Lab assay of single mutants.
Amino acid sequence: MATGGRRGAAAAPLLVAVAALLLGAAGHLYPGEVCPGMDIRNNLTRLHELENCSVIEGHLQILLMFKTRPEDFRDLSFPKLIMITDYLLLFRVYGLESLKDLFPNLTVIRGSRLFFNYALVIFEMVHLKELGLYNLMNITRGSVRIEKNNELCYLATIDWSRILDSVEDNYIVLNKDDNEECGDICPGTAKGKTNCPATVINGQFVERCWTHSHCQKVCPTICKSHGCTAEGLCCHSECLGNCSQPDDPTKCVACRNFYLDGRCVETCPPPYYHFQDWRCVNFSFCQDLHHKCKNSRRQGCHQYVIHNNKCIPECPSGYTMNSSNLLCTPCLGPCPKVCHLLEGEKTIDSVTSAQELRGCTVINGSLIINIRGGNNLAAELEANLGLIEEISGYLKIRRSYALVSLSFFRKLRLIRGETLEIGNYSFYALDNQNLRQLWDWSKHNLTITQGKLFFHYNPKLCLSEIHKMEEVSGTKGRQERNDIALKTNGDQASCENELLKFSYIRTSFDKI
């Protein structure tokens, strides 16, 4: 039985969820670079991206490699990797027998973001014989899940209580170790020597080791999670996991709180800001991140802002960003909400898709409305799209047979046209069989910064309504002859009103 693990408890099935942008060198404390989270699957090609990484700022997932063999891993080693800020997950990587050479110096898994409450997941690794993470000293947050690894031993010899604050939620089941077939031998045991430290858990006094050649490092209890030197002297209180010299914040392997210019500090002093819960960055760093993602459509890219001495992905609820200094300031009234469309555009074809934009005031991208039916549609669209004030790209209304009016965009005031449909149009209306009105132009103002209007096959939309939009939106004169079809717009509506004058002759039985 794995020490510190839980057996036999019912657990939810383990679901495996399925960018080499360097964020800056980590400095003297770390020998390499800070790398983003990685999802490495199918083959070993991307694994080489770990070569210079000291910190993975995010998670590391290595999974679904069915053609790899043990010899493929023999020359692979990433000794610079010290810390993973989120979680480490391995799933069905064939041929991998140990992690001792792959990650010989991995010391800390912070667990800032977890995989279903777990910071370390080893699942269905069919050839893994031992973990071998002999320098792993601290899992700051989260638990361990090690399950269905039929060859995995050296679990009962690990004292997880020396690595985690609590072992109650560890789930370590259905491994070879369960069948008591392992016969784990710690260093020196074969020669009758006791080389590794022994600890007591559940009444068992057991030597602690990761492999037959690597003991588990056990520091004096007084050192807590700070770690200790090879001689057993406690590291500085700002260290986490390990250090090369005692009581020196510049000799830590990793930091308990924050890293700044080669030393570990309790908090980031001005003019620095907390970033990702582990390091200090200056304003320029946060500003660069903001600008890199301002026009990016890459998933996970955030326009970072500053709030409460932190550089964070977005302002919290009730705050909006001051564009001059990136500071989050309290909103006066309802907060603006910028919604970034991942692929640059979004099609609204149902109430469900409209709900995804609920509360958005600025759309960074283009909207395509293609709704053919739905219950209580006008009210639903207004509830979900009615706060949109600005669209950076274009607005396209296409084959939306259920629409009679666009009044559900009740606050839309600006279409920038930074991206144009077919390279020309910022407003595009095609084949809307029941569209009769755009907006009530006596109450609604709309500016279209650039781009043209396109109207074709809107049989109940009168040309007068379209011409009014040209005047109000500032697009009059931009359109070419064929942009607004004269014969297919309003051709099934009563669009022309003329005053009919009647004269009559009164007659009676005795007068003409």
Rank of each mutant, 00 (worst) to 15 (best):
A230T: 11
P104N: 00
N135M: 13
T194D: 03
C280A: 00
G192M: 11
I201H: 15
R141A: 05
G188E: 05
L120P: 01
W278E: 04
F258M: 06
Q287E: 06
V126G: 12
F66P: 06
K193N: 10
M125L: 02
R145N: 10
L106Y: 00
I201P: 13
M65I: 04
L89K: 01
Q276C: 02
H127T: 08
G32E: 13
E314S: 05
G232I: 03
A190V: 12
N195H: 07
S225H: 05
C196M: 09
C255D: 00
P104L: 01
G262F: 12
K292P: 13
Y118F: 09
D261S: 09
N242S: 11
P249G: 08
V34Y: 04
I62G: 01
S112V: 07
Y134V: 15
K217M: 03
E168W: 13
C215K: 08
T85I: 12
D165Y: 12
V218I: 12
S296Y: 12
P36H: 03
F275I: 05
G241P: 02
T157D: 06
F258H: 07
Y259A: 03
H274G: 09
Y154R: 05
H212L: 12
S98I: 02
P31M: 14
E130V: 06
Q245V: 12
R297T: 10
S237G: 11
V173G: 04
T107R: 02
Y171S: 12
K193R: 09
Q303M: 14
C153I: 01
N202G: 15
P316G: 01
T157W: 02
L81V: 02
P70E: 06
C255A: 00
C53F: 00
K193T: 12
G318L: 10
T250D: 03
N150A: 05
K100M: 10
T68W: 10
K191M: 08
D177Q: 07
S166G: 01
D277T: 07
Y134M: 11
S143A: 14
P316D: 10
N179M: 05
T45H: 06
N105E: 12
C35D: 00
G183T: 06
L240S: 12
R92F: 03
S237K: 05
K224H: 06
N295H: 13
S323Y: 14
S225I: 13
P316R: 04
N43F: 06
N43Y: 08
E124T: 06
S54G: 00
I185F: 14
L131A: 15
P104S: 01
E49A: 05
N295A: 06
C239A: 01
V173P: 07
N309W: 09
K80M: 08
L99C: 04
Q61S: 13
Y273T: 08
S98M: 02
L90T: 09
T320V: 11
I40T: 15
E181R: 13
V200T: 02
C186S: 03
H236S: 13
D248Y: 00
G333Q: 15
D247N: 02
P104A: 01
G142H: 01
E168L: 14
F73I: 12
V206G: 10
F103D: 00
C223G: 02
V108I: 09
W210C: 03
T229M: 12
C53R: 00
L50H: 01
I222V: 04
M38G: 11
S143M: 12
Q61T: 07
L29Q: 03
S112I: 15
I306F: 14
N242F: 08
C53T: 00
H307L: 09
T250C: 07
Q204H: 02
D159S: 11
C293T: 01
H291Y: 14
R110C: 10
R41I: 15
G241M: 01
L47E: 01
S324Q: 03
C280F: 01
E314C: 05
C315A: 05
P36R: 05
D261N: 10
D288W: 08
L240F: 04
F115P: 02
T107L: 06
A198V: 05
M137T: 09
T140A: 12
T250E: 10
H307V: 07
V108S: 06
E151F: 11
I201S: 15
T45W: 15
T194I: 14
M321S: 15
N325A: 15
R69A: 12
N138I: 04
V305W: 09
R263G: 13
D177R: 07
G333S: 13
I82E: 10
S112R: 15
C235S: 00
N150G: 12
P313K: 04
I306L: 10
A254D: 01
G203S: 06
L289I: 14
C53I: 01
L152T: 02
E57F: 03
L102H: 01
Q245H: 09
L29G: 08
